[in-house]
């Protein structure tokens, strides 16, 4: 048991050292990179390792007779969570969200230290000791707190009041409400009833079940279904249109939306708002095909104000593509991400 716990504790200490090293730039911050796609699991397992490490440390300290006061365990763990969220997660979490996590973890820590009467006593004993100041040490400690607390709080409020030149936060609606209909190249499309003319089966009839069987498979890589290669010479109908849509995508759209449709194209780094990531389940997978048609045809400039039409560099594609080309690109985007367009029912 002890051997196991020492190993676990060692891992915890190493992890902590690494985290601190990365924060202060002693260790390159990309030593263990968070990789998109693995990130949630990476974060969870890292946190699990840390918690195990702390448990190990606490066990070791206990068995060596230098028990760490419950009070400081709670405080330090809460500080650790905050540090981890601030410095490890990328892209950075806004302060407001961190504050929410902070509250939740505070409540969790509080519940942990007050799980039963004995624990709670253990937790608050150090506080009472300092308040009462019965020993010389505690007296010194109390004096220190009495001086430090006003200074810290005063200093903190000074820092927050000092005029800052941080980026102002502006919240944008990513999927604003669409209009009822849209006019493209002289033809009016009612969003509720329009259909992608290329989502057809071999008989040429609109058939979403047919196309759903031919899209790429979900899971890592999102590879094409076996025997559904759009580049096959014999590919016809839906798959042929997918290829044509892909050709248009890779001559027009990938500059921003990227080779893997994840919004990491060649020019994407320069733009804000960042290009949409179609592989994210929150974008095209949530939307009807006609919504996409409207967004593609009218572009950033055609957005309502909550979508920040002034900042979006999304072209109004009716200026560059024909209606058919737009429908084919949409067909390709669903094929390549392996998502089904949402339907009205």
């Amino acid at each position: 048991m002890k051997a196991l716990m020492s190993v676990v504790a060692l891992i915890g200490v190493l992890g902590l050292l690494m985290l601190i090293g990365m924060i202060f730039g002693v260790i390159p911050s990309n030593t263990i990179r968070l990789v998109e796609g693995y990130m949630p699991m990476q974060v969870l397992s890292e946190l699990a390792i840390f918690v195990a490490g702390f448990a190990g440390l606490s066990y070791l300290a206990n068995s060596m007779g230098v028990a760490f006061p419950r009070f400081w365990q709670g405080v330090l763990f809460w500080v650790f969570i905050q540090t981890y969220l601030k410095f490890r997660i990328y892209p950075p979490i806004p302060f407001s969200v961190r504050a929410m996590y902070g509250t939740v973890s505070f409540v969790a820590v509080f519940m942990w230290v007050s799980a039963n009467e004995e624990d709670w006593k253990k937790f608050r004993q150090p506080i009472l000791n300092v308040l009462d100041a019965n020993t010389g040490f505690h007296k010194a400690l109390r004096t220190m707190y009495l001086i430090l607390l006003p200074l810290l709080i005063g200093g903190f409020s000074f820092m927050t009041m000092k005029p800052s030149i941080d980026e102002p936060i502006e919240l944008r609606t990513v999927h604003p409400a669409p209009p009822a209909s849209t006019k493209v190249h002289g033809k009016t499309y009612t969003l509720q009833t329009s259909q992608n003319p290329y989502r057809v089966n071999l008989e040429g009839k609109y058939d979403q079940d047919y196309s759903n069987k031919l899209i790429v498979e979900q899971g890592m890589g999102r590879l094409m279904a076996p025997n559904a290669n759009p580049w096959d010479d014999k590919a016809e109908g839906y798959l042929k249109y997918v290829r044509e849509g892909g050709e248009i995508f890779f001559q027009n759209c990938h500059f921003c939306h990227g080779d893997n449709l994840n919004g990491r194209g060649l020019h994407a780094f320069a733009f804000n708002p960042i290009p949409a990531n179609f592989t994210d389940p929150g974008t095209i997978a949530q939307l009807q095909e006609t919504f996409i048609f409207w967004r593609v045809a009218k572009g950033g400039i055609g957005l309502p104000n909550e979508g920040f039409p002034w900042a979006s560099v999304m072209p109004p594609w009716e200026q560059h593509l024909t209606t058919d080309e737009i429908w084919k690109v949409i067909l390709f985007e669903y094929w390549h991400t392996g998502y089904y367009p949402r339907t009205w029912d």
Partner: peptide
Amino acid sequence: VSAFYYTILQPPIPQEVYIYPAVIAVGVV
């Protein structure tokens, strides 16, 4: 072309920034 940036003429620090934190510190005491 770039995205939207913001330019800001950095102001000198106003007096209140020194006064209020001091008041708060006294309150804590």
